[in-house]
Simulated assay, not measured.
Amino acid sequence: MNDPARSTLVDQTVVIVGGSSGVGLAIARLASQSGAKKVVLIGRSRDKLASAATDVGGGNVDIAPADMVDSAALTAAIRSAGTIDHLVLTAVADEKKRIGGIAALSDAQMEGAIDKLRGFFFAARAAAPILRERGSMIFTSGASALKPSARMSILAAVNASVVTLAHALAIELAPVRVNALTPGVVDTPIHQGEEREGIRRWAESELPARRFGQPSDLAHAALFLMTNPYVTGQNLVVDGGLVAR
């Protein structure tokens, strides 16, 4: 039996940490289009958040500037939304700065990579008391969690930890649903110029899906995780077949 309500967010509040660009912004657009009563965008730059809110439009978007590794500021930003239905975590550190052989990685590079896990922990702790009983959390991981490669050891470890944190919280916070979302290569602003074109060509020739992932691909996956009441404790991989190669 079809249930149209499953694909909508009518009268619900969605908080997106990392919502000013890329995957987070695409999720914000789709959440607004799917009837969300309020979409709250959290990120470090007030100007980027304001631009994203204008992009989403609809009059149902609030912004709350905060750095996710600032526990107090992030907690205040999340709780400013009041009771929430969904927490979506998409913020990432600059991964290019965390790539390197283990012997050459600095303490600062390691700490910067771990900031993702630290920030996601702060966000989940802040949101847990204000989530509706059958709300949800989504933790965005990365394909390196499932398919590590040379020079990406610390990123692989952090992304795998994000997935494990989501699985553990699905048990601890039930009936709140907690899932991980794992993208492959996605066409976001972190890829620019010749690098972006190189990735696009590689994706179109080497990935089983034969295309460069788009933020909208991840947004629709996130909507599924927010609206399907029987999915929890899972890691949804949306990677064009990268891990299967």
Score class of each variant (00 low, 15 high):
87 L>R: 12
113 A>I: 05
94 D>V: 01
96 K>M: 06
89 L>R: 08
83 T>G: 15
124 A>K: 06
122 F>V: 01
82 G>K: 10
98 R>K: 06
89 L>T: 00
82 G>H: 11
124 A>M: 07
96 K>H: 13
123 A>K: 04
105 L>F: 00
104 A>I: 11
91 A>T: 08
81 A>M: 13
124 A>Q: 05
94 D>Y: 06
103 A>V: 13
108 A>V: 11
94 D>N: 12
85 D>P: 02
103 A>I: 10
117 L>N: 06
114 I>D: 02
104 A>T: 14
125 R>C: 02
95 E>M: 13
123 A>H: 01
91 A>P: 05
122 F>Y: 13
79 R>S: 12
125 R>M: 05
109 Q>A: 04
106 S>H: 01
117 L>F: 11
108 A>S: 14
95 E>N: 10
116 K>A: 10
123 A>V: 01
118 R>T: 14
82 G>L: 05
120 F>P: 03
124 A>T: 05
103 A>W: 07
104 A>R: 09
122 F>S: 02
108 A>R: 08
97 K>L: 08
90 T>P: 15
93 A>T: 15
91 A>I: 01
119 G>V: 01
96 K>F: 12
100 G>R: 03
112 G>W: 00
108 A>E: 15
102 I>A: 05
100 G>M: 02
112 G>M: 04
90 T>N: 11
112 G>H: 03
122 F>T: 06
111 E>S: 10
82 G>A: 13
113 A>V: 05
101 G>L: 01
115 D>H: 03
119 G>S: 09
116 K>T: 15
101 G>W: 01
113 A>S: 08
118 R>S: 00
125 R>D: 10
96 K>R: 15
96 K>W: 10
104 A>K: 13
101 G>R: 07
111 E>P: 00
83 T>Q: 15
124 A>G: 06
118 R>F: 00
109 Q>V: 05
96 K>L: 11
125 R>E: 09
119 G>N: 03
104 A>Q: 13
107 D>R: 10
119 G>T: 02
113 A>Y: 02
91 A>G: 07
108 A>C: 01
101 G>A: 12
112 G>Q: 03
122 F>A: 03
84 I>R: 15
101 G>P: 03
125 R>H: 14
88 V>I: 15
125 R>A: 10
79 R>E: 15
110 M>P: 00
99 I>M: 05
122 F>P: 02
92 V>S: 15
80 S>G: 15
118 R>K: 13
121 F>L: 07
80 S>M: 14
88 V>F: 08
101 G>V: 06
91 A>N: 00
